[in-house]
């Protein structure tokens, strides 16, 4: 599904280059569920953002769904992103001014779905996450766990092939975290969504099919479960 080859990312700090991602190569097959672990500052988020095309590597080759990402123009890249990728953030990042319903709906608007279609899809999603009763509330009126559910619902609404989640349970208690992991597992198994998550929890990491450990911008180890 995607392939990173000799990807590096550095920041110029004063005269020296500070490598955050240092020559990483990684193949991901469709249907995989990968957990990325590593100490804080090891480059996990950066890697995830590069995979999700929200950030650009300084060098290296990036292929995704048969496209040569590093050669694409901004517009094409964002089209590719829209079509395949859903993103879940540790800090939820819901739009404060929009209701739960509208937050979930927004990606569909950007993908030019018709209003009737959108209605059906959002209703479906609300149902699935059992948050129908909350659809008219604003993010500020929800608990962290509920907000993250909305965040995930929003990431999934357009039916992405690849779900990227950066510490999705980082701000939740363990019970809420577990629910979300169950959800991911189900998505992966039943809907065939490829998932890459960043997590600090060994337990959550083990929901995945592969665990990659990062250290100082390199892959320190990779373990198939």
């Amino acid at each position: 599904m995607l392939s990173l080859q000799h990807i590096s990312k550095f920041y110029q700090v004063g005269g020296t280059r500070n490598f955050v991602i240092n020559d990483i190569s990684l193949e991901v097959e469709a249907g995989e569920f990968i957990s990325i672990m590593g100490p804080s500052g090891s480059g996990k988020s950066t890697l995830l953002n590069i995979i999700g095309m929200l950030d650009e590597p300084s060098s290296g080759y990036h292929y995704f769904a048969g496209e040569t990402v590093h050669q694409l123009k901004d517009k094409q890249r964002s089209a590719l992103y829209k079509k395949y990728i859903g993103f879940v953030f540790q800090a939820y990042h819901l739009i404060d001014e929009l209701t739960v319903y509208e937050n979930i709906e927004t990606p569909l608007i950007y993908q030019d779905f018709k209003s009737t279609e959108r209605k059906a899809m959002v209703a479906d999603m609300l149902d699935r996450f059992q948050i129908v009763g909350k659809k008219d509330l604003f993010p500020a009126q929800l608990s962290g766990g509920q907000q993250q559910l909305v965040g995930i619902a929003r990431a999934l609404i357009a039916g992405p092939k690849l779900l990227l989640a950066d510490e999705p349970t980082g701000n939740l208690n363990s019970k809420q975290g577990e629910e979300i992991m169950q959800l991911f597992k189900k998505l992966n198994k039943e809907d065939g969504v490829t998932i890459i998550q960043v997590t600090h929890s060994e337990k959550n990491a083990e929901y995945g099919s592969r665990i990659i450990n990062l250290l100082d911008g390199r892959i320190e180890s990779s373990k198939q479960l």
Partner: peptide, 16 residues
Amino acid sequence: AKEVGIRKAIGSNRAS
């Protein structure tokens, strides 16, 4: 800015 960031991350392009 935060709103802009989120919107971009969920698929908005610059024009919209």
